[in-house]
Write a protein that binds this DNA or RNA. Structure first.
Lengths: 119, 119
DNA sequence: CTAACAGCTAGAGCGCACTCTATGTCAAGG
DNA sequence: CCTTGACATAGAGTGCGCTCTAGCTGTTAG
């Protein structure tokens, strides 16, 4: 698959502005260009964007995503470090989920209180 | 319980600045003052701060928290509306949890891929 | 030919939720 | 007395993650 930026934007739900911003920030390896200087995203780029969004939406910051991207660019020998970062991210997600579950109980408790007060 | 701002800050983990900011924004009903103009938070205030943090940390925005606070101030007749808002918040939390769970799977999948490539 | 459109860059601007600064008052301790 | 420290206010500043603008090039359709 080879997409231009607007198609990729539709495909991923990431705005054109953000796609260029991610590249500028080094979150995306420099994307190949055609002879006109237009970005052509290949399958790997597309997969990486989707994965990057997954990291982002689970609360990873831009700086850490950049760090991860740099590791990918550096190649094979950084695999262990990448696994370490991903495991850390999963631990954070786990903590988030647990926090959310406890908060949802607090809110449920409040709803019950309100309902009981109703006389 | 009657606390001054620095004690409340320690009690709740919310910074002094943020406590005053919340009050200014109307997220906190105007706090009683002593004769010197110093804020004295009572048990209700303390509970409300803790609950507000719960809303905040589950992704409710400042504007909606303010709306909720205004309903509390308006009193009994807004109870149904408050319940509605809290149920909505719980639905959002549920969606967040589901999203996080699916993303954690994606990340796990990536970790496995990395581990397999290892030869 | 020209207008509409898609892309490009550099850099400015924005919204949110804080967070901090400047300046001042008041009470207690050395 | 005077410094220290907790509190107060109004308003400025910050960091993050976008998001948009200005001004440009090149392609395509009428």
């Amino acid at each position: 698959m080879r997409l231009q930026i607007s198609q990729l934007s539709k495909e991923t739900g990431v705005s054109i502005h953000t796609l260029r911003y991610y590249e500028k920030e080094g979150i995306l390896p420099p994307v190949k260009r055609n002879e006109k200087g237009i970005r052509i995203y290949d399958t790997d780029d597309i997969e990486w964007i989707k994965f990057a969004r997954c990291l982002r939406q689970t609360g990873m910051g831009i700086a850490e995503m950049k760090q991860f991207a740099q590791l990918v660019i550096q190649g094979e020998e950084t695999k262990q470090e990448r696994i370490r970062l991903l495991r850390q991210q999963n631990r954070r997600i786990k903590a988030q989920i647990e926090q959310l579950m406890s908060y949802t109980e607090v809110i449920n408790h409040k709803i019950e209180l309100y309902s009981l007060e109703e006389e």
